[in-house]
Design a protein around this nucleic acid. Sequence first.
DNA 1: CTTGACCCTCCCACCGGGGGACGGTGCACA
DNA 2: TGTGCACCGTCCCCCGGTGGGAGGGTCAAG
Lengths: 270, 270
Amino acid sequence: MRSGLSIGEFAQLTHLSVRTLRRYHEAGLLTPASIDPASGYRYYTSQQIPPAQVIHRLRQLDMPLAEVGRILTTEDPETREALITSHLQRLEVELDRTRAAVVSLRQLLRPDVEQLDVRLCSLPARTVAAISDLVSLDDVLAWYDDAMAELDAAAAGHKRLGPPGGRYDNELFTIGRGRVLVYRPVADPPTLGRVAPETLPATELAITVHHGVHHDIDVTYGRLGAWVVEHALAVDGPVHETYVCGPRDDPEPQAWRTEIGWPVFRLSPA
Amino acid sequence: MRSGLSIGEFAQLTHLSVRTLRRYHEAGLLTPASIDPASGYRYYTSQQIPPAQVIHRLRQLDMPLAEVGRILTTEDPETREALITSHLQRLEVELDRTRAAVVSLRQLLRPDVEQLDVRLCSLPARTVAAISDLVSLDDVLAWYDDAMAELDAAAAGHKRLGPPGGRYDNELFTIGRGRVLVYRPVADPPTLGRVAPETLPATELAITVHHGVHHDIDVTYGRLGAWVVEHALAVDGPVHETYVCGPRDDPEPQAWRTEIGWPVFRLSPA
DNA sequence: CTTGACCCTCCCACCGGGGGACGGTGCACA
DNA sequence: TGTGCACCGTCCCCCGGTGGGAGGGTCAAG
């Protein structure tokens, strides 16, 4: 019996490169069965082939090495399963975004520029039931769902004075992290859990309507922004969204209507 | 009229980060409409919002910046369309691989280790019709399809003496590039185009059968490799595949049978 | 004119992997 | 018992696309 499989032999058996095996060792993912203390040579055994293949598969699924390590060191099969399925869900979400990007790209490249309906609107100050937080762009969708549910629960029984809405700091989009506020205008805004009354200041808004799902709402933002600029206005402050018709109102995405509004001010005429 | 939109304003309008806009400028993807020669400040116009959004979408589809640049500078819409669809096809291929990796991962994690049938087999030397080339791992699938078609055409009319096969250098898998040979055993091997007679030397092979599509054939290789090691043999030379039943024989992937064989030699007993 | 927000360039870090330099080791064969 | 050569070790730099931050100039409102 030799001291085991050399790294090169093991690379042949697993279809991994020698460099990659060394990296996995360094990362603690796959420690050689033995290491010659004199030469530093790594020696593997045939029992290490299956774990190497699991790592290979997880990497094919773009799982970060750190997470692969977490899976390998987890003894409990259920916890491991949970880690894997959560990663697969992430892949699924990404796939959705990819599909949406394809559709949106096709629309962008189509030359027909239909009219964009924009209205300027002076909104008075009003006090609403709101949840506000500092959120990063990756988490904002989950945060929104959660906050809206809590808001609905807290505002149940209070007279509704209009559709719900949100206010999103521009930093959320430009640096990926910013303050987000979701609200529901109700009579006598309650204080309950994260929900608290909030007074939205009066603003002048340039408003247009986005139809359907939000995957390509940035295009509508861009078109609204272009309109604003071309009408000698300037953007000033966080964007406002009003969920006139959303998934809680109609199951059909094509029925959804989101008003988006950018606070603007008139540039002093030259 | 001001000199245009500052990079920060433009970042707000497009939901891109300032850093990213600078990078796109540097890469020649989106040159600001004007640059103040004194300060170096970049100024954009509202007409640049749509191209910025196209770039954004292409990047969401993981298209490399260089290719995005190629698309943007291409005037001809058909060529542009071709570039985009070819990228989408790449995404589709990757998606297939991802799906296959998920299935294979599940199989790897299932604890039931069914028996692996391996036979040792002394293969005599024989002369076959073959195509051989130095191929990189990324191209090997396309190369294989192409070469097999040419081989079938050249060997048509010659009496077939067995199923087709291939021989793959280990370097193909370990460093991603290696010599590949596909062959068909026929009477009187012809010389035609890339096809030439080739004499495969006699070898001792450890052979097992892989069932179905090849996405997870590396697992079978690993299991065969483990068997070889555990039987005090050592791998020696390029791997052999014999396509006993393939897509040209049966449209159903679960009927496919690929014999894989590793040249082995017996380690001198201690 | 000051102040603070904005913009500039430049360098470093990240991820997972490859390329290559440079020197030490294993092993088969002479 | 040497000798040659393929192998293995570590180390550093490269890729792509992005973020973080330093250090310094610029714009515009008060």
